[in-house]
Structure formats: structure tokens, C-alpha cells
Design a protein around this nucleic acid. Structure first.
Lengths: 167, 167
DNA sequence: CAAGATTGATGGCTCAATCTTC
DNA sequence: GAAGATTGAGCCATCAATCTTG
């Protein structure tokens, strides 16, 4: 190995499997969705969030929060989806800065057509082979790592200030 | 919900957490590596594989197999890394079609400089908070899904032939 | 023809800069 | 000045087409 204190063999195996399973799953689902419905996974996620919204529309920043996307990424993506007539922008009367994002009729049709096969595929590849315990283990594990990421990010933001405060 | 037979709440939670933890981890590590060493995760993986190879060089297709990358992706990426003087292409005497990929001295230095912080970060964020059982559970789970992906892909390749053979 | 590899086009992501409205 | 959002540049991934050698 190249690095000083690398991972144990078991840890390395786990890490590689984790990265590989994500790469494989997302590339497989992207390809399937693309072929069957002409949508990317990202398109699909945007549309599901809009379809689930009360009026079928959301403020851009709400959509961004739900997807956990940066503003810029969302804006670029919506521009591309707009060109394909999947979503529409609507003026927001309450806030001159803001904009609503709305699913077009075409968009809704495409989503409805795409959903069953996609859900079936997630079911079959991931969850059908998972017992109750594994499901809980996976959730706990992911949420723990997410919590550690949050803590770490928070620490970075506060540390410089705290240091100056202490000196 | 939009779709006919969606996932249970627990499954949905697990699925979202899984996707989110990957997105967060890889974006975090990409940013850290980029800032501290001017490397992407992809660069890093390429270089680790080369550094671990017997002579510090690999045939392009061997590298592609190790990384599980498409030919085209690898070729584009190596072209970009070549421009930054991280890798070099070497003629292969045995096979006129083929090419060796070699880590440059610069490349090796950059890798050695980047590795400790990166490994520490994976350790701290992922594995330090993981007990033996969770580690095994994660590995098993990922490998199971990977096996299902393989089976499914194999089935698709064979099915059309089998169908024609049966008719 | 198959295997190894490259190329060009297109869509997608990130970063920094910008614009408008609060 | 901060929040909501957009833009342009540059890097990355995928697909289809291509080229060369076995």
C-alpha cells in the first residue's frame, strides 16, 4: 500500500463495496430510466418532489432544500428541464426575488409513465433481498455517518471563531 | 405519493439516507482533496492503482478493470491527467494496440502528499464510529446487492437468446 | 470480426461572480 | 448587507462512432 496508516482489509473491502454498489446502482438506474422514459435520476427526483407538493409547485429554494442541491446546480438543471418542457417557472407574487417551479402536464405524464418500472427496480435490486435487521442496520449506519459529517462541518465553521475568542 | 406501489416509510428512509450519505461523503472528500492537493477522488483512485502496481505501470485495460470504468471514461480522464503531468503513456512492445499508463514522478509526489489526510478523513468520518458488527453488516449488504446486480445483468444478456431458442 | 484505445458531442456538476430584491 | 436566483467557465461522465492491430 501507498499510504502510511491505511484501512484494515475488512474496512477496505467495506469501503470499496460501498462505493461500487452506489456506482453500479445509480448507473444502472440512470440507464434504465433514460432508455425507458428519457429521464435521468436527477430529473426523476425533481419531478417527484414537485408532484408531491400541495399545488404541484414549489419555491426554488424549497426544492433545493428537499433535494439537498446547491442553488447553482438546481438552476442549471431546471434550465435544461425547461428546454425539454418538463417544468415551468412561475412568478412569485409575494417575493419579487423568488420563483415558483411547476411541473408541466407533459412532465407529469412522463413521471407517471416512468415511476412503476423505476420503483419496481429499486424494490427488486435492493429491498426485496433485505430482512428487517439489515434494513435497520443500513439506516442506522448511514444516519450515523451523516451525523458525523454534520458535526464535523459545524466544528469547522465554529473553530476559527472559538480559537480567536479563547486567545 | 406519486407512484402506485412505492416503498414503505422505513425503506424510503433507508434509501434516501443511503443516497444522501454517498453524495455528502464524496462531495466532501472531493472538495478536501481538491483544496489540499489539487486532486479529484477519481485522480486519487487512478494514482493509487498505479502506485500499487508492480512496476508502477499498468495496461490501460487493467487499470480500467481495477477501477471498473468504461474505456472511454478512462481515456478521457488519462488525457486530462496527462495534461497536468500526473501520468504518462508508454508504448507497449508486446501489443501494438495497447498502451501502458505510468505514474510520473510529479504524480507520485502529489499522491504521497495527499494520502495521509485523505485516509485520516475516511477513518474519522466512516470507520472510527463503526463496530465490528456494523462493518460486517455493511459489507454483506453491499455485496448482496452487487450480486443481485450481476445476476440481473446476466439474465438480460441471456434472456433474448433463450426466448428465441424456445420458440 | 474482436480487442484495445481514442475522439467528439452532449449533458451534468462545481466554483466564483453577478444581479435583483428584501 | 443578506437572501433568492442566474450565469459562464471548466471539469467530468456517457454515448456513439472511429481507428488500428490482433
Amino acid at each position: 500500500m501507498t499510504s502510511p496508516q491505511w484501512l484494515t482489509d475488512d474496512e477496505q473491502h467495506a469501503w470499496r463495496s460501498f462505493l461500487l454498489v452506489h456506482a453500479r446502482l445509480s448507473s444502472r438506474m440512470n440507464r434504465d430510466l433514460q432508455r425507458s422514459a428519457g429521464l435521468s435520476l436527477a430529473d426523476y427526483d425533481v419531478m417527484v418532489n414537485l408532484a408531491d407538493a400541495p399545488e404541484g409547485k414549489l419555491r426554488a429554494f424549497e426544492l433545493g432544500d428537499a433535494l439537498q442541491w446547491e442553488q447553482s446546480r438546481l438552476s442549471h438543471h431546471l434550465a435544461r428541464m425547461h428546454r425539454r418542457d418538463l417544468v415551468r417557472r412561475e412568478h412569485c407574487p409575494d417575493d419579487g426575488r423568488g420563483a415558483f417551479v411547476v411541473l408541466t402536464d407533459t412532465g407529469r405524464e412522463r413521471l407517471v409513465a416512468a415511476a412503476p418500472a423505476h420503483v419496481a427496480s429499486v424494490r427488486q435490486l435492493v429491498f426485496d433481498g433485505l430482512d428487517e435487521g439489515s434494513l435497520r442496520a443500513l439506516t442506522t449506519l448511514c444516519d450515523d455517518v451523516l451525523a458525523r459529517l454534520e458535526d464535523d462541518a459545524a466544528e469547522r465553521d465554529v473553530a476559527p471563531l472559538a480559537t480567536t475568542a479563547r486567545t
